[in-house]
Design a protein around this nucleic acid. Sequence first.
DNA 1: CAAGCCGCTAACGTATACATAAACGGTAAG
DNA 2: CTTACCGTTTATGTATACGTTAGCGGCTTG
Lengths: 260, 260
Amino acid sequence: MAAAREVRPASPRRGVRHHPTLAGLAELPARDRAYQDLRYRILTGRLAPGTTLLETELAALLSLSRTPVREAAIRLAEEGLLEIRPRHGITVRSLSPGDVRDILDVFSALEIKAVELVARRGISAAEAARLDALLDRMERNTAAGDIARWSDLDDDFHSSLVALCNNPRLQRTLGEYWGQQYLARQMVVRLRPLPLQSDIEHREIMAAIKAGDPAAARAAHTRHRDRADHLQLSLLHAHLSGAQPGPAPIPRTPEQEESP
Amino acid sequence: MAAAREVRPASPRRGVRHHPTLAGLAELPARDRAYQDLRYRILTGRLAPGTTLLETELAALLSLSRTPVREAAIRLAEEGLLEIRPRHGITVRSLSPGDVRDILDVFSALEIKAVELVARRGISAAEAARLDALLDRMERNTAAGDIARWSDLDDDFHSSLVALCNNPRLQRTLGEYWGQQYLARQMVVRLRPLPLQSDIEHREIMAAIKAGDPAAARAAHTRHRDRADHLQLSLLHAHLSGAQPGPAPIPRTPEQEESP
DNA sequence: CAAGCCGCTAACGTATACATAAACGGTAAG
DNA sequence: CTTACCGTTTATGTATACGTTAGCGGCTTG
């Protein structure tokens, strides 16, 4: 199995913890430990798509009783990471290109709204500085050609933006989609060209936010997500060319990295 | 307790059942019965905002054991209808104006995306006819001044649109927000002016969809939701004038009700 | 040989038991 | 009179028990 390499946990940050990490699951309720543990295993590929386990087996795997494991599984099913088919087991979902499109459609719509709200609300100098610093680091990684690290920082940038939008429900729902979006992205990270255009667009988004211009921010982020989502889907389809549109395994080919 | 009058269940329809109804909870699993029963009681005001019950009390109320009731409560909490505070009970949430704004921001963003997707996908003549028929009925009710019935049809129209968008995740997430959006709307239905403008905008949306023009559909629906949401918030603030921005009880003024 | 019926197994849904730890009240000390 | 500590109560979180029913395979019959 390639991709056995651990997903590099992004540096700990304020704001919502999205990245797969097991840190600090110390004295949480068992249900939350089950949730985080399972989520971690799914997002890192330790639990491969298609894997099917019974409630009892999951409970044994996590050394817990069925009750908290069941609650965790229900939650992960609601997030689209598991599929529960009573009497047939609990299966790790695999994402077809259609699924990826659906996920990105929702995720982007929500994120665009979040950015608009951030611009409307306005951000402090400190917050702007933090985001700008992230963009600086991303551009350095682009220059260095380190797309994996850039990708982590990109996650950070987008999550940090969302964390400023001041709409808890929006944040929660985006969080629910985060795992799926992360998996979808992992399917193509290795195929991505150098994110020169993304770096430019990020600066435009930041400019609109700093200017307190919600319409401009919305427009800039819409352009960004439309282009990025389209690219992601193109890469996915290209990579899967020949494969049927059915459930696609997560591709793990180490390919080229190019510059536009 | 005013508003004791039952919420008029909209006519049964294909597509997602959103309206509060108890129909057909016959042989469902206990957890689903608990979910639907509780949701129904909340949306109809039988369980008033602020009501706090312990898991045991809820279980007794529904004549079930704690396990399925607990799972139902967790789900309703995720939907924002209940708040679970361990050792302090399970409380029916009340919506502050800020909550309503947050809810509408998310709900509208998602619905606009759904409409865009419907326009992109294109709709059949039969589907178009069904939607047009709904609009006809709405306009007749507008002419008759029956805002309550118009409101039910409006729910139907919006839900029917979403049902055509072909993105199950988007539909699911919209469904999760439906209850909150419904409650928010109920807070002001009685204060609404005649929806003349909405009727016009609905026709514009339909035209863009029939034309298969996603950008136009998005623009039309954005205008519609922006205006309608703004109106709703204005009505809410006006109605609550004097009240503090804290958790606001759902207004239950026994005002005029037009005859059906 | 195919197809349908029947009985068995066990996974799940639900109920219940149990342990823990948080809230509350009372008491005592400052 | 206020505050802090302690003991009791009990709601919750988790584990476990139990009944039901969905699958599944074998058997029988056409």
